[in-house]
Nucleic acid binder design. Structure first.
Lengths: 138, 138
DNA sequence: GTAAATGCAAAGAATTTGCTAGCCC
DNA sequence: GGGCTAGCAAATTCTTTGCATTTAC
């Protein structure tokens, strides 16, 4: 959660971070890999994975793992909430203010140290809902 | 989210459900497999996976996927919140009342249909925190 | 009787890891 | 120069799937 030691600035790492910061989507490791390859064709997938892991350990980015098998990454490392469409898989950022006070509440209830929390909403996004009405009579 | 058609009651399925309801932990598929094998030694892992999937599709159980690579399952299909220890991986149920009103808020903000939400707290559980103080001076 | 479920094993997919060479500080 | 990183590929791990057989309703 807090920076562990120093993190070296390699070309690969910087491009990965740039790519991640340049999108509003919440891409998978493989998507990042494909994008970074446009700039560093010889980068390896393993390097991308290692860097994504390192970066999230240092709090530079956030790893999100929802129901799916693979993780998504988010360059916005501040706490914010998401909506996930169960039909098309889209991930949207929400404007709700993070309810930090809840963390204190949980600390008092459990005696644990709470560092962060995550809130996700699941449903059908407006785009998919439109199509849904066609298939309602199934 | 809502029951889809009929679900056949096989011996395997019933034991899986029983095992899951008989624990307060949030076991992985493999743990369930090991437990069920005590009663049905010849059950296959594939069957366990298939049933866990079926059961969660029918709303009988809940699939939880946190940061880790593998899913955990919860026989409590009502919405409730969790605390996850980032050191030992323990998962605790919390007593916080589900904030259903948030779902409406998100619906209004986004225009999406929200069916459910999930809230998780991350940190260090009290047991691990005790040990932590020994290694603070690293 | 028939559709759905099981067992078994093999396939799949995402991620991690070992090792050598190279680059950052 | 020393150690953190990259590259490459093989290995791991969790999960899914095909097919023949069995079972629930």
């Amino acid at each position: 959660m807090k920076p562990k030691g120093f993190i070296r600035k390699t070309k690969q790492r910087q491009v990965i971070l740039k790519v991640l910061r340049g999108t509003k989507t919440h891409p998978t490791a493989d998507w990042v890999y494909q994008e970074v390859r446009k700039e560093i064709p010889h980068i390896s997938l393993g390097t991308v994975y290692r860097n994504l892991k390192t970066l999230s350990e240092h709090g530079e980015i956030q790893e999100l793992s929802f129901g799916s098998t693979h993780s998504h990454f988010d360059a916005n490392s501040e706490n914010h909430y998401h909506f996930i469409c169960q039909k098309c898989g889209a991930i949207q950022d929400l404007d709700l203010r993070p309810m930090v006070s809840l963390e204190k509440e949980v600390e008092e209830e459990t005696g644990n140290e709470v560092y962060t929390h995550r809130l996700e909403f699941y449903g059908i996004c407006s785009a998919c809902a439109g199509e849904d009405s066609k298939t309602t009579n199934s």
